[in-house]
Structures are given as C-alpha cells and as structure tokens.
C-alpha cells in the first residue's frame, strides 16, 4: 500500500476486547501484525519488548486510567499513532496534551487502520525513519 511506510507491527491499546479483536483483524487484513494490550503498563511492555512501529490507542481505559504514558513514550520514540475515542467532549484537555490525530469512535475498523497508515505515510514523507 505505502511502499516505504508500510507498518509491520501495530500496538492496539483497548480495554474493550471486542473492539480490540475487530481492530486486530482489520490490521491483519491489511497485512500488519497486531499486538493488543488492555492497559497502559501492558502497552508500555509491548512498546519496549516487541518491535512495534505504530499504534492505535483508546484514550480512557476504565477506572480513570488513560493511555497518556504510552502516548508520550510513542512520541519520544517518534512512532506514528492515532487515538481512537468516543469521549471527545470530556477528554479535551488530555487530548490536547497528547496531541495526536484522533479518530472518533465509532469508526469502522478498516477506516481506523487506513487513518493510521495515512498518518504513518505523512510522517514518512516529512522525516526519515528513526532506527530503533
């Protein structure tokens, strides 16, 4: 699809298992491996230990937990990611802090994946890739 910026392995941080599964399958349909995480520590683990090169993050993960730490780590590593949330009204401040493209829930999973690929491609065009 995007020769240079095709992602190989994408992290899905999502506390709702059905949505995680749907996104995982949509990624696999696009020829991308998926690693799922249900909470932020799991996501941090995945970012450290698997060679993740992009991510789709749910913002509010239940019990007041958010994806903020994982998002900041992805920023630090310069990896492309998007936020997938239904809570645009209440998370305004948090979303501004994280400062990443947002896809409003519900959006069909294949469009979420498309958006991530577009973000990755844009980045690939603007900067050379960072070696990890």
């Amino acid at each position: 699809m995007n020769g240079l910026t095709q992602l190989k392995c994408v992290l899905v941080l999502e506390d709702e298992p059905l949505i995680a599964m749907d996104l995982q399958w949509a990624l696999e349909d696009a020829g991308i491996d998926a690693v799922t995480a249900r909470n932020c520590p799991e996501a941090m683990d995945a970012i450290k230990n698997k060679s993740v090169d992009g991510a789709i993050l749910d913002v509010n993960l239940g019990k007041g937990q958010t994806c903020e730490n994982a998002a900041m780590e992805l920023h630090r590593l310069g990896l492309p990611f998007i936020l997938n949330t239904g809570d645009l009204d209440r998370s305004g401040e948090l979303l501004r802090r994280i400062n990443a493209p947002v896809v409003a829930k519900p959006t069909p999973s294949e469009l979420v994946v498309e958006r991530l690929l577009a973000v990755a491609a844009e980045r690939g065009a603007n900067q050379s890739r960072i070696d990890i």
Partner: peptide
C-alpha cells in the same frame, strides 16, 4: 455501545 456492536458485526 455502537462501537462494540460494530465490532461484533465485523467479527
């Protein structure tokens, strides 16, 4: 709920 319904239908 609509996001989860969407996921169920897709799956």
């Amino acid at each position: 709920v609509f996001a989860v319904i969407g996921a169920i239908v897709n799956i």
